[in-house]
Simulated assay, not measured.
Amino acid sequence: MTLSLETPALLFSATSLILLAYTNRFLTIATIIRGLKTSYDQGEKSYILDQIKNLNLRLTLIRYMQLFGVLSLFLSVFAMLLLFLEHQLTSIYLFGLSLLSLLISLGISFWEISISVKALRLHLKDLIEKK
Protein backbone atom coordinates (compact mmCIF):
# COMPACT_ATOMS: atom_id res chain seq x y z
CA MET A 1 0.00 0.00 0.00
CA THR A 2 1.30 3.45 -0.88
CA LEU A 3 0.22 6.89 0.15
CA SER A 4 0.82 9.94 -1.99
CA LEU A 5 1.65 13.37 -0.62
CA GLU A 6 -1.65 14.75 -1.91
CA THR A 7 -3.87 12.41 0.14
CA PRO A 8 -3.15 13.87 3.61
CA ALA A 9 -3.32 17.34 2.04
CA LEU A 10 -6.96 16.69 1.20
CA LEU A 11 -7.83 16.96 4.91
CA PHE A 12 -6.52 20.52 5.16
CA SER A 13 -9.52 22.37 3.77
CA ALA A 14 -12.08 20.10 5.45
CA THR A 15 -10.36 20.23 8.82
CA SER A 16 -9.88 23.99 8.63
CA LEU A 17 -13.57 24.54 7.93
CA ILE A 18 -14.58 22.19 10.73
CA LEU A 19 -12.31 23.98 13.19
CA LEU A 20 -13.77 27.32 12.12
CA ALA A 21 -17.29 25.99 12.72
CA TYR A 22 -16.25 24.66 16.14
CA THR A 23 -14.76 28.03 17.06
CA ASN A 24 -17.95 29.83 16.01
CA ARG A 25 -20.00 27.46 18.19
CA PHE A 26 -17.66 28.09 21.11
CA LEU A 27 -17.93 31.87 20.76
CA THR A 28 -21.72 31.74 20.48
CA ILE A 29 -22.10 29.59 23.58
CA ALA A 30 -19.64 31.77 25.51
CA THR A 31 -21.74 34.83 24.69
CA ILE A 32 -24.93 33.07 25.79
CA ILE A 33 -23.30 31.98 29.06
CA ARG A 34 -22.16 35.53 29.80
CA GLY A 35 -25.72 36.79 29.27
CA LEU A 36 -27.21 34.05 31.43
CA LYS A 37 -24.65 34.71 34.17
CA THR A 38 -25.68 38.37 34.22
CA SER A 39 -29.36 37.37 34.44
CA TYR A 40 -28.58 34.88 37.20
CA ASP A 41 -26.65 37.50 39.20
CA GLN A 42 -29.56 39.94 38.96
CA GLY A 43 -32.14 37.48 40.25
CA GLU A 44 -31.57 33.88 41.22
CA LYS A 45 -33.53 31.52 39.00
CA SER A 46 -32.84 27.81 39.10
CA TYR A 47 -33.58 27.22 35.42
CA ILE A 48 -30.84 29.69 34.45
CA LEU A 49 -28.35 27.71 36.50
CA ASP A 50 -29.49 24.50 34.74
CA GLN A 51 -28.99 26.18 31.37
CA ILE A 52 -25.51 27.32 32.36
CA LYS A 53 -24.62 23.77 33.45
CA ASN A 54 -25.85 22.43 30.12
CA LEU A 55 -23.87 25.03 28.20
CA ASN A 56 -20.78 24.30 30.30
CA LEU A 57 -20.98 20.64 29.25
CA ARG A 58 -21.29 21.74 25.64
CA LEU A 59 -18.22 23.99 26.02
CA THR A 60 -16.26 21.01 27.34
CA LEU A 61 -17.37 18.91 24.37
CA ILE A 62 -16.42 21.68 21.94
CA ARG A 63 -12.97 21.85 23.55
CA TYR A 64 -12.52 18.12 22.87
CA MET A 65 -13.91 18.53 19.35
CA GLN A 66 -11.27 21.19 18.72
CA LEU A 67 -8.55 19.12 20.36
CA PHE A 68 -9.17 16.09 18.15
CA GLY A 69 -9.63 18.30 15.08
CA VAL A 70 -6.27 19.98 15.65
CA LEU A 71 -4.68 16.59 16.39
CA SER A 72 -6.05 15.32 13.08
CA LEU A 73 -4.53 18.25 11.22
CA PHE A 74 -1.21 17.87 13.07
CA LEU A 75 -0.99 14.14 12.31
CA SER A 76 -1.88 14.79 8.69
CA VAL A 77 0.92 17.36 8.35
CA PHE A 78 3.34 15.03 10.12
CA ALA A 79 2.34 12.21 7.75
CA MET A 80 3.10 14.52 4.82
CA LEU A 81 6.51 15.30 6.30
CA LEU A 82 7.26 11.60 6.64
CA LEU A 83 6.11 11.00 3.07
CA PHE A 84 8.48 13.74 1.96
CA LEU A 85 11.26 11.98 3.90
CA GLU A 86 10.22 8.69 2.25
CA HIS A 87 8.97 6.91 5.38
CA GLN A 88 5.96 5.35 3.67
CA LEU A 89 4.77 2.87 6.33
CA THR A 90 4.98 5.27 9.26
CA SER A 91 3.20 7.96 7.27
CA ILE A 92 0.37 5.54 6.46
CA TYR A 93 -0.13 4.80 10.15
CA LEU A 94 -0.01 8.48 11.08
CA PHE A 95 -2.50 9.33 8.38
CA GLY A 96 -4.75 6.56 9.71
CA LEU A 97 -4.49 8.09 13.19
CA SER A 98 -5.30 11.46 11.64
CA LEU A 99 -8.49 10.04 10.14
CA LEU A 100 -9.37 8.40 13.46
CA SER A 101 -8.88 11.73 15.27
CA LEU A 102 -11.16 13.42 12.76
CA LEU A 103 -13.80 10.72 13.28
CA ILE A 104 -13.60 11.17 17.05
CA SER A 105 -13.97 14.93 16.63
CA LEU A 106 -17.02 14.48 14.42
CA GLY A 107 -18.52 11.96 16.84
CA ILE A 108 -18.16 14.39 19.73
CA SER A 109 -19.69 17.06 17.51
CA PHE A 110 -22.71 14.84 16.94
CA TRP A 111 -23.02 14.35 20.72
CA GLU A 112 -22.84 18.11 21.31
CA ILE A 113 -25.49 18.74 18.65
CA SER A 114 -27.75 16.15 20.32
CA ILE A 115 -27.44 17.96 23.64
CA SER A 116 -28.19 21.25 21.92
CA VAL A 117 -31.32 19.89 20.25
CA LYS A 118 -32.61 18.40 23.53
CA ALA A 119 -32.04 21.71 25.31
CA LEU A 120 -33.91 23.62 22.61
CA ARG A 121 -36.81 21.17 22.73
CA LEU A 122 -37.06 21.62 26.51
CA HIS A 123 -36.93 25.37 26.02
CA LEU A 124 -39.81 25.22 23.52
CA LYS A 125 -41.81 22.57 25.40
CA ASP A 126 -44.24 25.04 26.98
CA LEU A 127 -45.00 26.63 23.60
CA ILE A 128 -45.69 23.25 21.99
CA GLU A 129 -47.96 22.19 24.87
CA LYS A 130 -50.09 25.34 24.48
CA LYS A 131 -51.19 24.31 20.97
Rank of each mutant, 00 (worst) to 15 (best):
K45A: 02
S46C: 13
Y47K: 07
I48E: 14
I48Q: 05
L49A: 15
L49N: 10
L49T: 12
L49S: 13
L49K: 15
Q51F: 02
I52H: 06
I52S: 10
I52G: 10
I52R: 09
K53V: 09
K53Y: 05
L55M: 06
N56P: 03
N56T: 11
N56W: 02
L57T: 10
R58K: 00
R58F: 00
L59G: 03
T60R: 13
T60C: 10
T60K: 06
I62G: 04
I62P: 02
I62E: 11
R63H: 08
R63T: 15
R63F: 13
R63I: 15
M65I: 08
M65K: 05
M65V: 13
Q66L: 12
L67P: 08
L67K: 09
F68L: 12
G69S: 08
V70K: 09
V70W: 05
V70C: 14
L71A: 15
L71Y: 02
S72I: 06
S72D: 13
S72M: 11
S72R: 00
S72G: 14
S72Y: 03
L73W: 03
L73S: 08
F74G: 07
F74Q: 05
L75R: 01
L75T: 02
V77G: 15
V77Y: 04
V77T: 09
F78I: 06
F78C: 09
F78N: 10
F78Q: 05
A79M: 09
A79G: 09
M80Q: 11
L81V: 14
L81T: 08
L82V: 07
L82I: 12
L83Y: 02
F84I: 14
F84A: 12
L85T: 06
L85M: 08
L85W: 02
H87Y: 13
Q88M: 14
L89A: 14
L89K: 10
L89M: 13
L89E: 14
T90D: 08
S91P: 00
S91V: 00
S91W: 00
I92H: 11
I92R: 12
I92Q: 09
I92Y: 08
L94F: 15
L94D: 10
F95M: 04
G96C: 15
L97S: 15
L97P: 05
S98Q: 00
L99M: 11
S101D: 05
S101T: 02
L102I: 09
L103A: 10
L103D: 01
I104Q: 00
I104M: 02
I104E: 01
I104W: 00
L106K: 01
L106T: 03
L106A: 07
G107M: 06
F110D: 01
W111S: 07
E112Q: 11
I113T: 09
I113K: 09
S114I: 06
S114E: 11
S114G: 10
S114Y: 04
I115T: 05
S116I: 12
V117G: 03
K118C: 08
K118M: 08
A119K: 03
A119H: 03
L120R: 05
L120T: 07
R121C: 07
L122N: 07
L122T: 01
H123D: 15
H123G: 12
H123V: 07
H123R: 08
L124C: 10
K125V: 03
